[in-house]
Write a protein that binds this DNA or RNA. Structure first.
Length: 497
RNA sequence: GGUCGGAUGGCCGAGUGGCUAGGCUCAGCUCUGCAAAAGCUGCUACAGCGGUUCGAAUCCGCUUUCGACCUCCA
């Protein structure tokens, strides 16, 4: 079997994954800012890295998955006065800031449970790690790479860039940055516009504030991830993930801070997922084009033709490689819904099928094909987590499964070992690695009883060739959202929408 | 303006220098009382123009065009 390789944004090439401690893998993913409801764009990273995390576990790694909650607001540094989004929103919603962030943290958790994302092993909050952040800032000050102005602390990027490769991750050249940003307004406390805040002095009306050696204030955005990732994963850890839009300045700043504080770069492998777009444009709060997850699940958004099940969204995201943009459209989502339904049905059929036990395949060609399709799934995941190709292979095998059930493929076409491999591959990749689940909630026994009564009545009608009655039952049930299906063997199955 | 990344069949989307991913839609056929489902078959694309090559959608150059980042952003 091949070995895991994936694209490292830092080196801009695919690299073989070698963990720092054999058998263990540390993964840090930038979590959400909980000043508002999560939208569709947020689904991309957390589903992507959920699969990464699942796959590492599948490979046998003990994974420590850390994903933070940013519950201390960031602030706009340039132009007007600092605006803290949490602070601002709390005032708007007339909530205590911690009340606000709790509310949106809860909503976030709820949504991602619906997506069947595993909970991270540790989910640290920014406000719970103020001391760690202050300590780290102090270290950076001691090393001479930060300066204090009016109770705020700024990181000296220019000085850093003289000694370290600043801009490598995001492909930026400091000189360009300095040149294109010459027009500072006189108010700016920073020595250079490229500098960023480690700690910000809080204006009097600011609700979220903590005591620090530099007066009351609040931490800068970038420092929380550095402080928390190093606390739980160490000064150097394996993988850091997040959206591409965080590459600069967030991740670039993380590297700079940690490099000074700890003496070396913090991360071995950087991974960045691409954006979800809508009409070709990135979906984002500032573009005013977001579709909230709650709206997606309920269908309550002008752009939505219908509600979409969380599993449809998950499948839709995994059908595309994580480094490609993914454009939203109802057509695409509906295609995913049908596709997932078909694939899942084949999977359920497969789990119920039994093999007749022949050790030798009756159809050698088909047998060999199936073995190849199964084995390739591992190779595809090992090649930069290519879930799109895994799904394509599963679809290749669906007709084999359906064919066995429908009689077009002989029950002994595959050798018993291959049949078992097929079963295992579907189960492992679909459920364990891609993290998909059935869309249909398990029905209550009572409804089952009612339906089987109707099905029996209809069977009698069919026996008597009373198709008017049998069709009436089927049609009326369909109107009520229950689809009946006459199987080849005379049984009747149904699905509930 | 700077940096970077895309442009693939009706739609969504993989992708490797040569062997037509996959999904959805559509059409035909098989099965079926009918339907649905399923199976089979068909629809063979890579923005344009040059170049490298025996051969390029895949490599290079130019053009057109879309986007991301350079402020908060997943």
């Amino acid at each position: 079997m091949s070995e895991l390789h994936f694209y490292n944004s830092y080196t801009r090439q695919k690299e073989k994954f070698v963990s720092i401690t054999p058998g263990y893998a540390g993964l840090y993913v930038c979590g959400p800012t909980v000043s508002g409801e999560s939208h569709m764009g947020h689904a991309r990273p957390y589903i992507t890295f959920d699969v990464v995390q699942r796959y590492l576990k599948y490979l046998g790694y003990k994974v420590r998955y850390v994903r933070n909650i940013t519950d201390a607001g960031h602030f706009e540094e340039e132009g007007r006065e600092a605006v803290d989004k949490v602070d601002e929103k709390a005032k708007l919603e007339k909530l205590e800031p911690m009340e606000l962030v709790q509310k949106y943290t809860n909503l976030f958790h709820h949504a991602f449970h619906l997506f069947n994302c595993d909970d991270p092993a540790i989910e640290p909050t920014a406000t719970g790690h103020i001391i760690e952040q202050i300590t780290m800032i102090e270290t950076i000050l001691e090393k001479g790479y930060a300066y204090v102005v009016n109770g705020s602390v700024y990181f000296d990027v220019k000085k850093y860039a003289e000694n370290y490769p600043y801009g490598k991750l995001s492909g930026r050249i400091l000189e360009d940055q300095l040149e294109t940003t010459r027009d500072l307004d006189g108010q700016d406390e920073k020595r250079n516009k490229v500098d960023f805040a480690l700690w910000k002095s809080a204006p009097p009306q600011h609700l979220m504030r903590w005591k620090s050696p530099w007066g009351e204030g609040f931490p800068g955005w970038h420092i929380e991830c550095s402080a928390m990732s190093s606390k739980y994963l160490g000064d150097v850890f394996d993988i850091h993930g997040g959206g591409m839009d965080l590459q600069f300045p967030h991740h670039e700043s993380e590297i700079a801070q940690s490099t000074i504080a700890h003496g070396h770069s913090p991360v071995r492998y950087w991974m960045h997922n691409n954006m979800i777009t809508i009409n070709g444009k990135k979906m984002g709060r500032s573009y005013n084009n977001i579709i909230k997850l709650s709206e997606l699940f309920s269908g309550s958004h002008p752009l939505l033709d219908q509600p979409y099940h969380p599993m449809v969204i998950r499948f839709y995201i995994l059908q595309t490689h994580y480094r490609s943009t993914l454009d939203f459209s109802n057509e695409a989502l509906q295609a995913s819904e049908r596709a997932l339904r078909r694939l899942w049905e084949a999977y359920e059929i497969l789990q119920k099928l039994t093999h007749k036990g022949n050790a030798e395949a009756e159809d050698k060609d088909l047998d060999a094909k199936v073995i190849t399709f199964c084995r390739e799934c591992d190779d595809f995941m090992n090649d930069d987590f290519n879930s799109a190709k895994v799904i394509a292979n599963l679809f290749e095998m669906a007709p084999v499964v359906n064919g066995i059930k429908g009689g077009q493929v002989s029950p002994g076409a595959l050798a018993s070992g291959t049949f078992l491999l097929l079963k295992t591959t579907f189960q492992v990749f679909l459920e364990d690695i891609l993290g998909l689940q059935p869309m249909q909630a398990t029905q209550s026994g009572k409804l089952d009883n009612v339906l089987s009564l109707l099905i029996d009545i209809r069977k009698d009608a069919k026996k008597r060739k009373d198709f008017a009655t049998s069709d009436q039952i089927r049609n009326k049930l369909a109107e009520a959202g229950v689809m009946l299906k006459d199987e080849k063997d005379g049984t009747v199955s149904y699905t509930i929408e």
